[in-house]
């Protein structure tokens, strides 16, 4: 049997354990969404989107690549463009072409398919 001493990984583990509480508090600030997250907004909601500028409040996106995944799925919807994300706030801003046949369910489905959860749609302008 061989025994090797490895101080560096052990040190990393120790640091990670001691610092976790503070980290979560600073990066995962609560948002004003007064509802259970659950599975997010209904994916079969047929309500048409009338606003041309929206803020989508999303849960579960943890990385730059996650954003790209969500952008790809959102921009596959007809009339949806300009997806921009504030990762810290979990908020995607999108533009919807006037008259585009996009429903609330379409948006919830796109985010779900990307791997995340849409918990609120905020209409910014119509």
């Amino acid at each position: 049997m061989k025994l090797h001493m490895l101080p560096l990984p052990c040190l990393l583990f120790a640091v990670s354990c001691s610092d976790s509480k503070q980290t979560i508090e600073t990066t995962d600030a609560p948002m004003a969404v007064d509802r259970e997250i659950g599975d997010g907004l209904a994916q079969d909601d047929p309500t048409l989107i009338k606003a041309t500028s929206l803020a989508l409040h999303i849960r579960g996106m943890s990385c730059p690549k996650c954003v790209t995944n969500a952008e790809i799925q959102l921009e596959r919807l007809p009339g949806v463009s300009g997806a921009m994300l504030d990762m810290g706030g979990g908020t995607f801003r999108i533009k919807v072409k006037p008259g585009a046949p996009v429903t609330r369910g379409n948006l919830a489905r796109a985010i779900w398919v990307a791997g995340f959860t849409l918990v609120e749609i905020e209409e910014l302008s119509s």
Binding site: D28, A29, I37, G40, G60, F116
Partner: peptide, 10 residues
């Protein structure tokens, strides 16, 4: 199974 618990929590 997947559950998104927060903005950056899953």
């Amino acid at each position: 199974y997947r559950k998104d618990l927060g903005i950056i929590s899953t």
